[in-house]
Write a protein that binds this DNA or RNA. Structure first.
Length: 444
DNA sequence: GATGGCCTAATTAGGACTTCCGGTGT
DNA sequence: CACACCGGAAGTCCTAATTAGGCCAT
């Protein structure tokens, strides 16, 4: 299975002539550009250890707390627009941002067929491997699915939507793809302090239970992402309901707008609302399915709880968002917490998913140039022409690369030459992104 | 001319929604 | 009455896999 670091080397070696890097030829080629689109770094909470410039950009994106219902709705839509309307260069759409920044981090290869165990009232129906799963739903034997026209070779089944725990297909097969699945989108929102807990929030992160605080806004964001201006909650909700069948989501009965991920990536970044007495979510572990702890169903116009969290979010924005325990806290549950068997509220179906080492955003990536960031930034090199005349904030950082190399060397002491890629394009798991030294503004 | 390798465009299959609908429950 | 929720049915969109055909070198 490919590691993230391998992906980095892969893309780097694809596009960079190592010889041009001179003395850095022993290192994987990483061309980093500072980009004038801070949302690339901040949209999903990646903006950590921001430079002042980045913080300044973020200031422009802040959403003021709303006061009441009607305004909330309007403001929400405006805010949703502001979140997704941030002008992107043509070839740097949010889709690209998502796919290139986050999708690779899900993993790289589906190493085995997805095994789904369906639990019904009658008991366990599964497991199915994919062909069986498919034939079950099509009513045809899997072997007949490919008998068309002349005897084509049986085609490999296309990888289905990766669930949070599933190793994703190889990156090379994902090339050019810009698909961000709805569940991924929701997870991103849940890790984005500009959206969570304002529009979507965890009600029980340990159980993977979340609530669409503002279903309209979330649906609108989704529609924006999918370029479906008519998207509404009804439509998005249909997609969510399909996730029941696929075992990705469960509905939390008795609570409106509350859903539950049947499985979550490890190292998920959890943003909870609260005031510093944090871990309130953990305290509420007894929440379980129907405890109704949801501090009253807050509909789209209910702003009372949102306001406070907004304030905390705003205060938070100027601080390095790592391992906070105060409002807008970002934390990852302990291993024990994560290992909890998620409550299965009267699930008609359920899916047993393998745990993963790959999360959407791994906390260890946050304070540094993450693999995903590098990937995205590297991609920007391809769209340089979109910044004619050279935006003042755009510069290639061969210097940065040098700085990284130096600092890495300093941090690691003497590095065994065997650990370095000897040729361009050589993949290795030794040089992993987390080894990169945190960047400071001086690096830039 | 035959063969094989490479490339590219077209075709096809299938997943993931999206849209619409009628209905129920709160 | 509004809204959330449900699930069937049909459709769209997108992507990966496969095939066919052209070109070129041997």
């Amino acid at each position: 299975m490919l590691q993230q670091s391998e992906l980095i080397f892969d893309f780097a070696s694809d596009h960079v002539n190592m010889s041009q890097l001179g003395c850095y030829s022993d290192y994987p080629a990483v061309i980093v550009e500072q980009v004038p689109h801070p949302h690339l770094l901040s949209y999903a909470g990646l903006a950590c250890e921001q430079t002042q410039t980045e913080q300044d950009h973020q200031q422009l994106l802040k959403v003021e707390p709303c006061e009441s219902g009607e305004e909330e709705t309007m403001e929400t839509l405006v805010a949703a627009d502001s979140l997704l309307n941030m002008d992107c260069p043509d070839s740097l759409s949010l889709e690209q941002h998502y796919s290139q920044t986050f999708l690779p981090s899900l993993g790289d290869v589906i190493t085995t067929p997805v095994t789904q165990v369906t639990v019904s009232a009658e008991g366990v129906v599964g497991p199915f491997d994919q062909p069986q799963w498919h034939s079950l739903h099509t009513g045809k034997p899997a072997s007949q699915l490919h008998s068309r026209k002349r005897s084509r070779k049986p085609r490999h089944r296309r990888a289905e939507s990766p669930t949070p725990d599933i190793k994703v297909k190889k990156d090379k097969y994902n090339k050019g793809g810009n698909t961000l699945y709805l569940w991924q989108f929701l997870m991103e929102l849940l890790q984005d302090r500009q959206v969570c807990p304002r529009y979507i929030k965890w009600t029980n992160p340990n159980a993977g239970i979340f609530k669409l605080v503002n279903s309209k806004a979330v649906a609108r964001l989704w529609g924006k992402h999918k370029n479906k201006p008519d998207m509404n909650y009804e439509t998005m909700g249909r997609a969510l309901r399909y996730y029941y069948q696929r075992g990705i989501l469960n509905k939390v009965e008795g609570q409106r707008l509350v859903y539950q991920f049947t499985s979550l990536p490890e190292d998920m970044i959890y943003i909870t609302e609260g005031d510093g007495t944090k871990e309130e979510e953990e305290e509420n572990d007894e929440i379980d399915d129907n405890s109704g702890n949801d501090e009253g169903v807050s509909d789209d116009s209910d702003d009372s709880t949102i306001l406070s969290s907004d304030q905390s979010v705003e205060e938070e924005d100027s601080l390095p968002p790592k391992k906070k325990t105060s409002a807008g806290s970002v934390h990852t549950p302990s291993a024990a917490q994560r290992s909890r068997p998620a409550p299965r509220p009267s699930a008609q179906r359920d899916t047993v998913l393998r745990p993963t080492k790959n999360s959407l955003i791994q906390e260890k990536h946050l304070p540094i140039v993450s693999a995903e960031m590098l990937r995205t930034l590297q991609n920007l090199q391809k769209v340089q022409s979109l910044q004619p005349g050279g935006h003042s904030s755009v510069f290639k950082t061969a210097q940065l690369l040098g700085s990284l190399c130096e600092r890495q060397a300093a941090a690691e002491g003497t590095v065994d030459s065997r650990d370095r890629p000897s040729k361009s394009g050589q993949k290795t798991s030794e040089l992993e992104t987390p080894k990169l030294v945190p960047l400071t503004s001086s690096d830039l």
